[in-house]
C-alpha cells in the first residue's frame, strides 16, 4: 500500500514543482502580442498571395496594426471593403486604392506573329528568356511557356492554345501581381479596372523601331505617335518607339483606338461601336 502512496505523493509533488516553474517562466518570458492582430487577420481574405507586399496575411495584419498610417497599404484581394473593415477595427484611415486587374500587353498570336524557329528546351519562360530572344522575330513579346499561368493562385489565367498567349479571366483576377513578377518579359501590367470595367491599353511592349517591329508582328506598336497626337488628355506618351497610356489620366474616349494603324491599342468591355455614319458621296461612275 505504502508503495502506491509514495508514488502518488512523489508524482503530485513533481507536478506541483513543474507547474510553479512553468508559471514563473511564462510570466518571465511572456511575449506580448497585440490581440488586434488576430482580429485583423480574421478580417483579411486568408489568400496568402503576397499581393500586399508582405509574406502572407498574418504578416500584413501585423504590419497594419503596427503602422500609424495605413492609407498607403492595400489588400488587392479584399479591396476597399476589406480595408474599410480593417480601418474600423484599428480606428485608422483606410486608403483609397482603386481596384486593379492584370492586362496582357502582347497580342502577338500565332496568326499575327509568324514563328521563325522552334524552341524545344525546358517549358519555362524564364529558361527560354535566359537562352535567347524567342521563337519569333519579336524579342520583346510573349514566349508562351506559361510561367504566369503557373504563378497564378486564383485560377485567373489559362493558355489559349489557338493564339499561344495567356488569357486573363477578369472575374477571378485579384491583382496580386504574381504573374507580373513571373513574366521575364514584363508583359503583364496591373491597371485600374476602370468604370464599368472599361479599360484602354497598348497591347505591345516592343521597343524596336517601327519598321522592324512591324516586320516581326502585324499588331506591334510602331511608335508612330498618332495616338499621342489625338489624345486630348495628355494620357499617352511615346518612349523608345512604344506608346504607353497612363490609366489615371485616360478618360476612355477611345480616340486612340481608332487612329492606331496596327490595332495595337485595345479597348475592353466597351459596348459595340455604332456603325460609322459615312458621308454619303455620290457614287462615281465606273471608269470605263
Amino acid at each position: 500500500m505504502s508503495v502506491v502512496l509514495i508514488t502518488i505523493v512523489t508524482l503530485a509533488g513533481l507536478g506541483a514543482i513543474a507547474a510553479v516553474i512553468l508559471f514563473l517562466a511564462s510570466k518571465k518570458f511572456q511575449v506580448f502580442e497585440d490581440p488586434r492582430i488576430d482580429v485583423v487577420e480574421e478580417a483579411l481574405p486568408a489568400a496568402n498571395c503576397g499581393g500586399c507586399g508582405f509574406p502572407g496575411c498574418r504578416a500584413f495584419a501585423e504590419a497594419l496594426v503596427k503602422a500609424d498610417d495605413i492609407s498607403s497599404m492595400n489588400c488587392p484581394v479584399g479591396g476597399a471593403p476589406t480595408m474599410s473593415i480593417v480601418a474600423g477595427i484599428l480606428g485608422k484611415e483606410a486608403g483609397s486604392a482603386k481596384p486593379q486587374v492584370a492586362v496582357l500587353r502582347c497580342n502577338g498570336s500565332c496568326e499575327h506573329r509568324p514563328r521563325l524557329n522552334n524552341y524545344q528546351g525546358a517549358v519555362s519562360c524564364a529558361v527560354a528568356a535566359a537562352l535567347y530572344g524567342g521563337e519569333t522575330g519579336c524579342s520583346y513579346g510573349c514566349l508562351g511557356c506559361g510561367d504566369c499561368v503557373a504563378a497564378c493562385k486564383f485560377d485567373a489565367m489559362y493558355m489559349d492554345e489557338e493564339t499561344g498567349l495567356p488569357v486573363i479571366i477578369e472575374e477571378n483576377c485579384v491583382a496580386c501581381g504574381a504573374c507580373v513578377e513571373a513574366c521575364p518579359k514584363d508583359i503583364i501590367e496591373l491597371r485600374n479596372i476602370g468604370p464599368k470595367s472599361r479599360r484602354i491599353f497598348v497591347s505591345c511592349v516592343n521597343k524596336d523601331k517601327g519598321a522592324v517591329a512591324r516586320k516581326s508582328c502585324e499588331v506591334a506598336c510602331i511608335g508612330c505617335g498618332k495616338c499621342e497626337k489625338v489624345c486630348a488628355f495628355d494620357a499617352i506618351t511615346i518612349k523608345d518607339n512604344l506608346a504607353y497610356i497612363d490609366y489615371e489620366k485616360c478618360k476612355l474616349c477611345r480616340k486612340c483606338v481608332e487612329v492606331c494603324p496596327t490595332n495595337a491599342i485595345h479597348e475592353l468591355n466597351f459596348p459595340p461601336r455604332k456603325p460609322k455614319v459615312e458621308k454619303t458621296e455620290p457614287e462615281k461612275e465606273p471608269v470605263a
Partner: peptide, 12 residues
C-alpha cells in the same frame, strides 16, 4: 531531362 537549361537559369 533539361538539366543544364535550368542550371543555367539558376546560375544567372
Amino acid at each position: 531531362r533539361p538539366l543544364l537549361d535550368y542550371i543555367r537559369l539558376g546560375k544567372a
